[in-house]
Design a protein around this nucleic acid. Structure first.
Lengths: 258, 258
DNA sequence: TAAATGTTGTTACGATAAAGACGACAGGTA
DNA sequence: TACCTGTCGTCTTTATCGTAACAACATTTA
């Protein structure tokens, strides 16, 4: 009974499996086998919707990847390796590759000629919410003496809040924003200033969503377009550029004193 | 000076980066940027050998992946994110995907109808040295009461030896082989028998490289063609099939008593 | 038993999508 | 003027997707 089911609900899983190096067909066949518990090629074809002729080469690849095993009966029966076991080894292989790649790339990176002069004065653009938060993450994680953050409350997302909480106690963290934080969410080395009255006084206007992150007074990230679908940010280690915002910061703190 | 270097030594790195989802060009451009420290598109083209026109879209993708940042100067300058940082986030994303996929797939796997009868009697084929060792790994890691291993000494590779050493002390491990082990390499719950004299007596012949791994007397892996380029193995939970080798095992142990 | 029917494993070939490769061109810089 | 940058369009190549056909074998039916 050729009951060919269409490519149904298997929505996000396929995308996730693609990250692990599986093709569309490989994902479909593997999922079908997880459902079926030892099936023939034809049955796999019926469940997965993958053309019957394509099932065989796809199964070969899955076998080589250690996700599927074959019986020695005739006709052959195929069975999925349990997903926790199969994915574990798949991921392990990727992690090994990543480790090897990192090793070689770091070697290249460190042996390059350092012409930092130019680079120091450069202002760089970052794209994508994820990448921006990653950069902030690295700034906070590597901060040795001080961290300064100011801007709209929305900028300090739960993830960033979490990163702040993990900054060592020896690092002075200064935050100036217009909102509040849950009590006890921040360690004692973090000082929060409320700039709401400054905003109302017209001293801080413009890009509502812009925000500034400064680490050790030498690394700066300027976040823009926070409400856009693809936000962007500027990053710089330029002393001149930094000084601009450090002055800005001085302005804020002294204004708050009055 | 158009000094277009050919796709040179960057041998294995590219393969490793492919595991992380990078294409050939992406890998070449990223490596070039690691060498160059903030270069223009043309310079990247010269170093990497990637066609100049192709460099731009490739850089876009690398930027989206958080591996490259752009200056706001004109002409644009590009710079590589340090590899340890960049690869970390890349791998993190993959691990998140793997975790999500595992969750969904395990759900599917557990909700499938259990028709174990047929499967129990089945004998499965595994392909590839890596996959075979992975299966052995899982057998040893999940063994609850007993482990039996017999066959040529070559089968017990350093990795397997390591796995044996990690088996909990409550599990009785029996090994029969024709070679020796470094003193202290094995914990006290492992008992080793020497079958060399049995081999010389002609009681154990045939496939020199075949070996048997049995866990809890209910899971069996039969390794074949150990010297072949792509070795294979049989796996089974069939009681009948298992009994065959348990008898074999009895034969060995009793023969050694005389 | 013999013919009819169905299934399996394999091969071949076309369609589509992605990556790789090349040339051309408007605009800006030196 | 000469050069470089950024962009576009096109072409080739490769991998994946998808369809069709076929020999070998097994099963059913007459």
């Amino acid at each position: 009974m050729p009951m060919v089911t269409t490519t149904k609900d298997t929505g996000p899983v396929r995308e996730h499996l693609k990250s692990l190096g599986l093709t569309k067909y490989e994902a479909l066949v593997y999922i079908a086998l997880l459902r079926a518990e030892s099936a023939s090629a034809t049955k796999i074809h019926e469940i997965s919707g993958v053309p019957r002729a394509s099932v065989y080469p796809v199964l070969d690849k899955l076998i080589k990847k250690g996700l599927v095993s074959v019986s020695n009966t005739t006709p052959k029966q195929f069975d999925a390796v349990p997903p926790d076991e199969g994915l574990k080894h798949l991921l392990l292989q990727i992690e090994r590759d990543a480790e090897a790649a990192k090793k070689e790339l770091v070697a290249i990176y460190q042996s390059r000629e350092d012409h930092e002069e130019r680079k120091q004065e450069m202002i760089w653009t970052l794209a994508g919410r994820e990448n921006i938060e990653n950069r902030i993450s690295d700034m906070l994680a590597n901060a040795a003496s001080s961290v300064i953050i100011f801007g709209a409350r929305d900028l300090i997302t739960p993830r960033i809040l979490d990163l702040i909480a993990q900054v060592p106690g020896t690092v002075a963290v200064d935050i100036a924003t217009d909102g509040t934080f849950a009590p006890g969410a921040l360690p004692p080395n973090v000082r929060v200033r409320d700039i709401e009255n400054l905003i109302q006084a017209g001293l801080l206007q413009g890009e509502q969503m812009a925000g500034v992150f400064i680490a050790d007074r030498e690394r700066l990230l300027l976040r823009l377009n926070g409400d856009d679908i693809s936000p962007s940010a500027l990053y710089s280690e330029s002393p001149a550029f930094l000084q601009l915002f450090l002055n800005y910061w001085n302005h804020i703190t002294t204004s708050l004193l009055t």
